[in-house]
């Protein structure tokens, strides 16, 4: 069933249009940086951007940091929100279930396909960003990069940490996917599941800026999303990253369990 869902994913024109749109922003930023050579002042603007001016090979990280807080969650909320509710609305859900495709199996396949979509998007963004970054912004001399803490990092260290960061970003998106998938088993319209998920994420982001909500903040889903930046300090600041991982794992477990429990006992009436 996972293979079937993946086939549907790569065949869908929407998948590629979405990825293309997401990919546009970092590319545009790279072009603007090249043309103007004006980076954000250190400590402001998207992560890594000031470093990028010195070393174009770091641009993939900057690109991921750009799409992670907004574009990627929107795309995930749309794709995962549609997972069950979309099939239900199209009427294809009942024909899948009587084939028969087990309900648990279907949920797992849908989740796998959403994560494959995220991976695909992240890879496309990273690869384009690498190409654009090295072409437009050029290499740093000396084959090493500078960490946020000012010390030198070897290319190998950069690669390892980049992979860790990608994994971390995937886990964060898995959290979003779990919420959207749960809502997708509850509501009839895919749009409602998507908007519900986005509303939760926006509320979370909003509460993070509010001092009065400080007691809630460690539990908000978006709290540690950008903590992967800490992976590029020397030595790595694990504290927030570990908290982020634990928090996302809890979100994923709770919402997937809820989605499963709800879907297993649901009457399929449309």
């Amino acid at each position: 069933m996972i293979a079937v869902e993946l086939r549907k994913l790569v065949r869908s024109r929407r998948t590629w249009i979405t990825i293309l749109l997401i990919d546009t922003l970092p590319t545009l930023v790279a072009v603007l940086l090249t043309l103007t050579d004006v980076g954000p002042r250190p400590g402001t603007g998207p992560a890594f951007l000031s470093a990028v001016l010195k070393d174009g090979t770091l641009f993939p990280l900057a690109a991921i940091a750009m799409v992670l807080p907004l574009f990627l969650p929107v795309a995930v909320a749309v794709t995962a929100g549609e997972a069950i509710a979309g099939e239900s609305q199209a009427g294809t859900l009942r024909y899948m279930l009587i084939r028969p495709v087990g309900r648990t199996r279907l949920l797992v396949a849908k989740l796998a396909s959403v994560m494959a979509f995220v991976l695909l998007t992240v890879l496309v963004v990273a690869v384009t960003a690498y190409v654009v970054g090295t072409l437009l912004l050029g290499h740093a001399t000396g084959g090493s990069s500078t960490s946020f803490s000012g010390t030198a990092l070897s290319s190998q260290q950069i690669l390892l940490r980049t992979l860790l960061a990608l994994g971390y970003a995937m886990l964060s998106m898995l959290g979003v996917a779990a919420i959207a998938l749960f809502l997708s088993t509850v509501v009839h319209a895919p749009l409602a599941a998507t908007m519900g998920t986005l509303a939760a994420l926006i509320a979370s982001t909003l509460l993070l800026t509010l001092d009065a909500a400080s007691s809630l903040q460690p539990y908000l889903p978006t709290r540690y999303w950008l903590s992967f930046v800490d992976l590029f300090r020397d030595p790595i600041l694990w504290h927030n990253v570990v908290h982020g991982v634990v928090l996302q794992v809890i979100y994923v477990a709770v919402f997937l369990a809820a989605a499963w429990a709800n879907f297993m006992t649901k009457d399929i009436k449309d």
Binding site: M1, A3, K8, R11, R13, A90, Y95, M96, R99, P100
Partner: peptide
């Protein structure tokens, strides 16, 4: 699935399940 042909639809449904 509206954007697939009839044949592709049958093939997709047949590849689901046992």
């Amino acid at each position: 699935y509206d954007d697939l042909s009839g044949r592709a639809n049958l093939s997709l449904f047949d590849s689901m399940g046992p």
